[in-house]
Design a protein around this nucleic acid. Sequence first.
RNA 1: UCCCUAGUAGCUCAGUUGGUUAGAGCGGCGGACUGUUAAUCCGUAGGUCGUAGGUUCGAGUCCUACCUGGGGAGCCA
Length: 482
Amino acid sequence: MGQMRRTKIVDLLQSKEFGKQIIVKGWVRTKRGNKQVNFIALNDGSCIHNIQIVVDVPDFDENLLKRITTGASVSINGELIESQGSGQSVEIKAKTIEVLGECDPEKYPLQPKKHSLEFLREIAHLRFRTNTFSSITRIRHAMIFAVHKFFTEKGFYNIHTPIITASDAEGAGEMFQVTTLNMDSVPRTEEGKIDFSEDFFGRSTNLTVSGQLEGELAAMAMAEIYTFGPTFRAENSNTSRHLSEFWMIEPEMAFYDLDDNMDLAEEFLKFLIQYALDNCMDDLLFLSKRLQEEEKNKKADERSMELIEKLRFVMENDFVRLTYSEAIDILKNSKPNKKGKFNYPITGFGSDLQSEHERYLVEKHFKKPVILTDYPKEIKAFYMKLNEDGNTVRAMDVLFPQIGEIIGGSQREESYEKLTGRMQEMDIPEKDMWWYLDTRRYGSVPHSGFGLGFERLMLFVTGMSNIRDVIPFPRAPKTAEF
RNA sequence: UCCCUAGUAGCUCAGUUGGUUAGAGCGGCGGACUGUUAAUCCGUAGGUCGUAGGUUCGAGUCCUACCUGGGGAGCCA
């Protein structure tokens, strides 16, 4: 006969099989009690809730009980019983307890008290053991799963695009170089430049800043594809909304125009949010309480909308769609612009929108998610489809309250002539892009796509305010610990 | 990268116009309590005041540089 298997706490808490012998394993959150009875709050990551272990002190060795401290791991053999206390309905009466791993309370940094998110960031290897980060971890998993579920149900194919790339023409930002050259003695050409022909790939390579271009290649045969992979930006940006390494979802669809693209983006975001509401309610309730607790000292008008209410609000409202030019008109005539409240006053067509402008549109003017379209070509990427006016491109940015741009996308330029024309204007070398241009040479079709920053979605769904708290081990300038 | 701001006990913070021996709460440890809910009550230990210079009779406190955290901006997802 094999050993009895452990039961997960999430299942025990829903069980009504009182009297049943079970094994539960996990990590001690707190222990309290007196000489007669001890209570251990045990968590195993299967849900936000702990299960209470009741220990009749006289039945156990004093030295064993002393080793059960906050953070210690234990295996407990006991009986599932109906709780006599008021805080829970089921609990476990311990028969035998084994301490799997001790945890020195003098040294263990996580104690049963409030810790700041900043402090927990410094001990990211341990922060999974807190309620906040175990909730975020479960929601993150649910969102990853929901992304694949959404696209699978729509008949999209997932494509793994390369992480190492030799193309630096994507124009999406500074790149991390990938090399095996000896940095102490770099090979040089006769002109004194670094000789990348000696490098591992025989050419200069970097980490990807986007899988879009390769995604387009796949879409030109598979029709509807998506990527979901790591993305690297070497920009020295130090904000609560940027990471050097983050995860991005990039669908690319043949035969979609910009309106189809917007429809898909809105449906996608709503699907993900609904999935969280349907599957992560315990964790959302906890994060909602946490947020309200954190903001209780703020003035009423500075507090965020209650988390679940906010998620439902997005579900129930259509996103506002308007063009860049219409947005400029609204901003130009807005109170803050007329009163000189903007740091960057709106003068007219052509100026890029600053985050203060985006926030005004989303949070003050429309008070709901906004999709801006048809930006001036000068401030957007070369591959976006040129409108008939010759000045604007069929771009779209989805703007969310609090986090700003959550999605950026466009209809792509399918005309070979127009695309190469734009590349020349923007000094993008055609020579290196021959494979991309082949899609426009052979069977080109209208197509569209967008990129969703996964951690930005996580910010919105969890209500967290710093992006470094919604990815397990954040990578940012001067930050690569763990 | 720029602007603002902070760094004092394991954590969160207080520390007066520069002045004798740097405080509190939480957490830890010891004790009390027959069912507790981040338990409660009593007691107790714990600090090279971010680092390096400087001003001063005297610096946690003032000045300079640097490091690190946080907020904002730019770049973007």
